[in-house]
Design a binder for these strands. Sequence first.
DNA 1: AGCCAGGTTTGGC
DNA 2: GCCAAACATGGC
Length: 308
Amino acid sequence: MQKLISPDISPGSSTGTCFEFETVIPDARIDLALTLVDSAQCFHFARRGDAVVGVSMGSPVRLRQTPEGLRMSADAASAARWVRYLDLERDYDAVFEGCEGDPLLSDAARRLPGLRVLNQPPWEALLAFLLSSNNNVSRIRSLVLALSRAYGATLELGGETLYALPEPVALARAGEAALRALGCGYRAAYIARSARMVCEGFPLDELAFLPYEEARAQLLRLPGVGPKVADCVLLFGCGHSSAFPVDVWVERIMTAYYLPGLSRARVAERARALWGPYAGLRQQYLFHLARTGALPGLQTARKGGERA
DNA sequence: AGCCAGGTTTGGC
DNA sequence: GCCAAACATGGC
C-alpha cells in the first residue's frame, strides 16, 4: 500500500531568477525517466543527469529521486499541481489487484514499477498526439521542441532555459504554412485548424467532466483526431482512465492474449468493458512492454505482416 | 536505400 | 461498415 502523501514544503536555495522552492515527497513511487521520458505519453521532458526537467501548466519543474524521496524544484504554488500531474495520489497496487492469475498483467506490473499515467492538461495531450499520427517518437519529440521554441513561452529554471508548449492561440495565429515549415508535414493543417477550433470555443476543458462516450464524440470532431488520438487525449489529458488507445502494438498484444480475432475498433471497445476504470492504465503498461520488445511472442511491425 | 513510425482522411464497394 | 491508398518527414 502506498502512504498518504504529505508534501513537506520548505524554501530551497533560490538559484533561479524566480521564486523557486524544493518540495520533498517521501515514498513517492514513481520512475521519473520511465514515466516522463521513455513511455511516450508526453514528449516534452528531458533527462538532466539523474534528474528530469520540463514545463507544464505554465511552470518549469526539475524532479529527482533521492533516498529522502522525490525532490521537486518548482515554484511553491505549483507543487500540488505537479503531484496531480504525476498521478502520485493513485494507488497503483489497486490497478493490478486481482491480476494474480493473469501472467501478462502481473508480469507487466512487476517489470515496470513506477510507471505512472500522467494527468496532462487536455491541450498538452491533444497537441502531442496530433503530432503523433504515423510518426515516430523521436521525431514527435523534436517537433514538440521546435514548436515550443518558436511559439511557446521562454522560462528559466536553475539557470537553464526551458520552453513551454505553445498555447492554442499561438498556433492558430501561426497558421498551416508556418507549421509546415517547421516540419509538421501534413499534420500542420490538422494542428492549425484544431487550435483554431479550441480558440473558438471547443470545450476542451470540459471533457474531463463529460461521460467517456460524449467526451470522445466531441474530440472526434477535431481535424486530425481519430479513435486512437481521441483515446490518448482522454486518457493522458482528461482523466478518463478507462480510455483505451489501440495502436498496432496494443492491437497485437490484445488479440494475441485477450481478444482474438477482433478489429482495432472492437478491441478498444471490449477492453474498456473488460477492465473498466483500469483499462487505460493497464494499456500503458502493456504498450510499453510491447513497444520495447519485452514480449518475444509478438511480431515486429511490418506492413502486410503476418501474425504468430 | 527503403521501411517504419503510439493514424487520419478520403474515396471506393 | 470495412478496405486501401495517400499523406510529409526524418530516424534508423
